[in-house]
Amino acid sequence: YPLWSGYYSQDPNSGLPITQHGRARTILEPYFTAGDIETQGSDHRGSKAVTSVTSEPTRSPIWGETVKVETLAENSGQEDVILKVMDYKNKDKLLSYKIPIKYLRVFHPYHFQLANSTQPSKESEETAEPQLYATIVRKNSFLPRYVGCDHTALEVFLRGVNDPLINNPNPMVVIARVVPNYKEFKENQARQSPASMGLHITPLSFPIQSMMSFDVPRVSQSGYPQLSKPGGPPELPQWNQSFLFQSRDGGTNFSKTAALVLEYYSSTSVKGSEPWTFGKPLGVSVLPLKSRLYRKITTGKGLNALRIERLPITDTNLKTINGDAPTVDLSFQLLSSEVRLSNLFHNCWPCSGTRGQGLLGEGHC
């Protein structure tokens, strides 16, 4: 069963159409289509997932939530996933976007800027074209194996900040990526190359004209960034979230230049005049993916898993109650077969209980 998840934000520069009541929510609703696309009223609808309602009436809602729906794998070639923004009080449909499931590459995180090309743009904020920002991931029950790759994926489970912070006013979000050459990645960031800054935003106009809008480059020097949910409370952000990096995207290519990069941002970065436009991060954690780490993962007991304790957050002004720079805990799992999703970490904190010498000092491996 493919799973769908999303993180939603509405562009405040292009508010929702005005309704009498003003409240809004999103609905993620795939349904069966066969020949005639207009089958919303048929009996072949899939599952539905709904976000919470905004806390107050607004034309620029931000949800920051993940919702999931399921559909039969054998039907995914004929089905669409539909994103709707609805008025809570009278159920008016404010926005609607329809995406064919078959266009989306499995397990790739798409960060979309959605807009209807048929809606004319206006200079006035009252009539500007609405835009919806959403991350969509299509998942299968099994991780695919790719020819020429010894492993299928690398899963990284991020727990949270270890010690309370004294100068962090907001929850934090994390952008995680695996880059093939960290030195080149930092040089591109210094030149402010758009591909190395924040998320890769894909503009998508409706109706969709070409499936090329969903094409994914085979190699990316900036990796394929993934966005976490907001972690709180501000004084001790916790995420308890997994990031999955596929082998075909270079996630399992351990080398002397590759690295896992975690960038920490204030959750207010998804708001403002340009949603998902991230400035300077609050801090960065970097873990080189060298052959030593690979041997540590594959020669341990049990599953190909490793726990890393107190990975430093560097390039930061954040301070803990002890006056030190903060640290985070995370776990790795190297997947070597077409495993079921149920075999992944899935928001747990795995540890075999064996005491050993970790890469960053003594810890559990």
Rank of each mutant, 00 (worst) to 15 (best):
G46E: 15
E125S: 11
I82Q: 13
S117C: 02
V81P: 08
W63Q: 15
K68R: 07
A115G: 02
S124Q: 02
A128V: 00
W63T: 13
H44S: 07
H44D: 03
P120D: 04
V85A: 14
S47P: 01
L114M: 15
I62H: 06
L104C: 02
V53H: 00
V69N: 02
P100H: 03
P109K: 02
S52G: 14
E125Q: 08
E65S: 11
S121R: 08
K68H: 08
I82C: 14
L114P: 09
V50K: 06
T118C: 02
E56H: 14
W63H: 15
R45K: 08
K93L: 15
K93N: 15
T71P: 01
L95V: 03
Y110S: 00
V69L: 06
E56F: 06
K91T: 15
V53C: 03
Q78S: 11
S60R: 12
E126F: 04
M86C: 09
E74I: 09
V106K: 04
P61A: 09
E129M: 07
Y103R: 04
K93I: 15
S60M: 06
E74A: 10
T51D: 04
T54E: 05
H44R: 06
S121P: 08
T51I: 11
D92I: 10
E74C: 10
E126T: 07
E123C: 01
K122P: 01
G77E: 13
H108C: 01
L94E: 03
N116R: 11
K102L: 00
N116M: 05
P120A: 04
E56R: 13
S76N: 08
S117K: 10
S47F: 07
V85N: 04
T51S: 15
K102I: 06
V67Y: 02
E74H: 08
E74T: 09
S76V: 04
S60P: 07
N90G: 03
G77T: 05
R105N: 03
Q113V: 14
V69W: 00
K89F: 05
W63C: 10
S117H: 00
K93D: 07
N116V: 03
Y97P: 08
K91P: 02
Q78R: 13
L83D: 01
L72E: 12
K91F: 14
L72F: 05
M86F: 09
F112E: 02
N90C: 01
A115C: 05
Q78L: 10
S76E: 15
L114Q: 06
L114E: 09
R59Q: 14
I101F: 03
E79P: 00
H44Q: 07
A128M: 00
R45A: 12
T127G: 00
I99N: 04
A73T: 12
